[in-house]
Design a binder for these strands. Structure first.
Lengths: 257, 257
DNA sequence: CCAAAAGTGTTAAAAGTACACCCATGG
DNA sequence: CCATGGGTGTACTTTTAACACTTTTGG
């Protein structure tokens, strides 16, 4: 019979802790989906697995969460230790994957994070490889290795990392219109042109956007929201010099309209 | 010195598992933000804590994840055991909170979930209480207990549940325009009017929307996306009978435009 | 002088907004 | 017969989209 006193019910909190101490707790890891734009294409950084399970398949880099660090802390450690990336890297949580058998060895719950860097060359370790992402059908992607001796094509990742990738790409595409993530792809956020930004936009969304309209409206919107300002200076190239802009918005979010 | 062979590096996966077995693993819980609309206001279901930490404060219901269940499974169990809700309840993952000291007792990582039910009366246990949400400033909410003898006002929840609530409300408001979550609030999704749906819309977003336009455009958009259809029948009330609609879209997502 | 790259302008269609008008029902 | 709730129409503004035109540079 159910007790009417909330006290008794709430006591189950502590009881459950004692009880579950005898259970085996799950491992908790973070997995990182590190993106960049390479030659006008969205790309993801992967590592090859050298042992079972999923031996010889590519997968996302990951790391266990230590006793005294948060998931964000684990991602930072992963970035500096496994990818040897120093300095501030943009990351945001994607979502958590907890299927009981997602790792055949042990029960592992993984918190997936998205990361963005402006240049593939920042990752400078031999065990990480870049793959450009070609979206074919809905929810289906073809990965082509960059800098490979031959064009290695990878269609299936280890664990549930395919699903993670799919969700991450949707997230990037969804957020590019009303957040400032686009600026995280910029090699020089203090001096860039509308053309540069447009290329990134097209790489991420996978669809073309009219040049003139992008310059007029998109850049204007960014300015109205105080994210960028014209540095007035001009750049060099083949044709007419382009206006240059500087990214000044901290990491503030701006909701459209 | 860094090894050039990815194999050696990858081996750390297994090494780390062995190593971490000696660590204490974190507890992993799910916390549920169960929403409903009560008298034209968005409301959240909370429980009072009867012991430290955060004794006498209100907090979200939660549960530990068991060895052989996913986070979604834990949420289902939480819904049926602690809230005594049977049948299919709409839930979606919000995000995971992993600050080292978010629970002063133990290291607990929590995966927060949003849930939506159409009627407060579905929760029928004495330890759960409904609070309407009045958004005052940005990121600040006042909670007013429903059915309380006196109007109890709660401004601060236990643990990091305030932050969870804030993020959850933002999520609801953001998604109401391009997903079908609005229909999860409907008491009868097979027979409802534009007015009913408009009331929910206003309750969730906290802002008024023109009646005529809602009927014309919003309902039309839903129909174009195959989410609802006119049942042709009319309903009863004071004024002119209203067209009734039926929700037919599974749980498909529709991106605007 | 011409091709290339980039800024700016023009126009039409689509979407959003405000508000008015008419319809059907219950008291 | 009138207040009330609900459908529908209209006019206006804003946004989006397509494309043309002009400016500036390098070869």
């Amino acid at each position: 019979m159910k007790q009417n006193n909330p006290s008794t019910e709430q006591g189950s909190d502590r009881r459950e802790i004692r009880m579950l101490s005898e259970y085996k707790h799950p491992y908790v890891t973070v997995d990182l989906l590190l993106f960049s734009v390479i030659d006008g294409q969205l790309a993801i950084n992967l590592t090859v697995r050298d042992e079972e399970p999923f031996k010889d398949m590519y997968a996302l880099p990951g790391s266990f969460i230590r006793e005294n660090e948060s998931a964000e802390g684990a991602v930072e450690r992963l970035l500096s230790d496994k990818l040897e990336l120093s300095g501030q890297i943009y990351t945001e949580q994607l979502m958590t994957f907890s299927d009981v058998n997602r790792d055949p060895r042990e029960r592992v719950i993984s918190i997936a994070y998205i990361g963005i860097i402006p240049d593939k060359a920042m990752v400078n370790v031999p065990w990480m490889k870049w793959f450009t992402i070609q979206s074919s059908n809905v929810g289906s992607y073809k990965l082509c290795q960059v800098d490979g001796d031959e064009s290695f094509i990878c269609t299936c990742l280890g664990f549930d990392h395919d699903k993670m990738l799919e969700i991450a790409i949707d997230r990037l595409r969804g957020k590019i219109d009303y957040t400032d993530i686009i600026f995280k792809f910029l090699k020089d956020s203090k001096q860039f042109t509308a053309g540069t930004l447009r290329e990134i936009y097209q790489s991420v969304t996978g669809q073309e956007i009219n040049r003139g309209n992008f310059t007029k409206y998109q850049m204007n919107t960014y300015m109205e929201h105080g994210l960028i300002k014209k540095t007035g200076s001009i750049s060099i190239g083949r044709g007419r010099p382009a206006d240059t802009y500087s990214y000044i918005g901290g990491d503030r979010l701006w909701i459209k309209y």
